[in-house]
């Protein structure tokens, strides 16, 4: 039954110690590895807690009652910590507390994980420069992390998470403090990441539909919908109170369904382009 090529949750439930009600309630789903999974939902949906389960933070560091199973590849964050932790990158909602609290410069901050992992000093410099270039932090390498803006700090947090080349990358609302251009750059970068299973919580529904392979909707601890963005957005329940991407809103208003599946409306620019071409050529 075990499939080592996928991320799977099996009747996963979690209750914090200080709480009586489960925050995650009976989640079952599976996705092949190396995909981008977008998680959406409103507050009290359990998004952050799900990220914590996937990173092994609960129940290892924050205690509570976990039932069911969570398996990523051939490892489980619950059973195989800390080996699993070595291969996982995590970006917290609050980038300020992502910092080690003991670094004079951005370069030091990025090097922190590598030092901890015992990487040789000669390799460290090279890897730090590469990652900094990827996240447009080269100019800030010798600055103090305290001097960065919110958006830059979020990019630094991402840099510290990916510098160890993780197999799994978990991002909890990584763009909240970025400006529109920074956000667009980030999602463009995200598309270029390969060989990594990425789980991203975000409110940016338009960008999620463009980048994610899978979309999960959480509502009050339940997984109420999952599938491709196209499927999920076309089968929303108004009770979930989830917004739709602007491409979809426009297509609905203009009545531009997909050519191949006329019951569905597009959710990405490319899908829109195709169905508009078809519609235009038909008229």
């Amino acid at each position: 039954m075990a499939n080592y090529q996928q991320l799977s949750l099996n009747h996963l439930s979690f209750t914090y110690q200080h709480d009586r009600n489960p925050v995650l309630d009976d989640l079952t789903v599976s996705v092949p590895l190396n995909r981008i999974i977008g998680i959406i939902g409103n507050h009290h949906a359990g998004k952050t807690t799900l990220c914590r389960v996937l990173a092994g933070i609960v129940p290892q560091i924050i205690s509570g009652k976990l039932t069911g199973d969570c398996q990523i590849g051939d490892q489980s964050p619950v059973r195989d910590w800390p080996a699993y932790n070595q291969q996982t990158g995590f970006v917290l909602q609050d980038p300020h507390s992502q910092l080690s609290g003991l670094a004079d410069t951005v370069a030091d901050e990025i090097a922190f994980d590598l030092l901890n992992h015992g990487v040789k000093e000669t390799d460290i410099q090279q890897r730090v420069t590469t990652v900094a270039a990827q996240l447009q932090l080269t100019a800030q390498l010798q600055q103090s992390p305290d001097s960065l803006s919110g958006g830059q700090l979020q990019r630094l947090a991402i840099a510290t998470a990916i510098v160890t080349h993780p197999n799994v990358l978990i991002l909890d609302d990584p763009t909240s403090e970025m400006d529109p251009q920074g956000r667009r750059d980030f999602f463009n970068w995200l598309k270029t990441v390969t060989h990594t299973t990425i789980v991203i919580v975000s409110n940016e529904i338009d960008e999620l539909c463009e980048t994610a392979d899978e979309l999960w909707i959480l509502e009050k601890g339940h997984l109420v919908s999952h599938g491709t963005p196209l499927q999920v957005m076309n089968h929303l329940n108004p009770e979930w109170q989830v917004t739709t991407p602007m491409v979809y809103q426009l297509a609905r208003l203009m009545n531009w369904p997909l050519a191949i599946k006329p019951t569905l409306f597009p959710v990405t620019l490319n899908q829109l382009r195709r169905c508009v071409n078809v519609n235009h050529s038909n008229q």
Partner: peptide, 13 residues
């Protein structure tokens, strides 16, 4: 800044 998303859609598509 970036223009509203609907303008980007109109421009790109």
């Amino acid at each position: 800044l970036l223009p509203p998303r609907i303008m980007t859609i109109a421009q790109e598509v």
